[in-house]
Design a protein around this nucleic acid. Sequence first.
DNA 1: GATACCAGTTACAAAAAGGTTACTATGGCA
DNA 2: TGCCATAGTAACCTTTTTGTAACTGGTATC
Lengths: 128, 128
Amino acid sequence: MANKNRCLTPTTDDECKRARLYLQDTLDVVGGKWKLVLISILRGGKLKFRELTREAGISARILSKELKEMELNGLITRTVVKTSPIMVEYELTPYSNTLSEVITAMHEWGKNHRQKIIGQQSTEPNSL
Amino acid sequence: MANKNRCLTPTTDDECKRARLYLQDTLDVVGGKWKLVLISILRGGKLKFRELTREAGISARILSKELKEMELNGLITRTVVKTSPIMVEYELTPYSNTLSEVITAMHEWGKNHRQKIIGQQSTEPNSL
DNA sequence: GATACCAGTTACAAAAAGGTTACTATGGCA
DNA sequence: TGCCATAGTAACCTTTTTGTAACTGGTATC
């Protein structure tokens, strides 16, 4: 039939759909090219706008857009410091720490995947 | 100075850069709009090409491209079944299970985030 | 006053991603 | 023979994303 259960961890078809919904929710908030990278960078402490562009290698226009979205989602705070040339500091919120498992998992996976790829290239006995 | 340590979990500046590298590696492989969703769907068991387009709501052109990339990265297998109208089954590889922590973490985060958002809307005492 | 740096924004251009439609090719069925 | 379903692919177009360069406005410095 068309409605067979298609998920292992979730057990009903309904749970299956909800699982995908949650996944999509997360992708909506931290998906894309930059947000997780910016969070990863900001885990080292607050940074100013220009510092962030340099650290991430992102253009000011995109950074501005990303930061606004992240602020709206409660992941970072924006603080204006009234110094000589005005300064704006971006800092992670406590709420952003709830993403640490996601980031850690991706970090670990990337590490292992890279080792797997490198291993395939050099240590394989029967290459070529 | 410019090279202060900017990462909490990793402790040296070098580890900090590597951490970001691993994150980017992962994003290269499973980033974008579809790959994690497709994996999530396929966790319920193998599916045919058309079934996948319907389940994910993705066009055939994009699905074809995504599946090729995922096959190249060893996440899925493609099997031709010589039935009446020929059939192609896509199935997760054991290697794709290494992503389960990433997917689970994102699933959990999306679930909690959604509850947080809904909670803000309805149960807040001073709304409006 | 000229220059330079900060934090952005705006306008324009390019590239990436995605969708639609039409098409190939195979084979069962009426 | 014509129609349907399968798995894609190719051409074309739209939308989204990203980048570049120029610019505002403020302050400090030369």
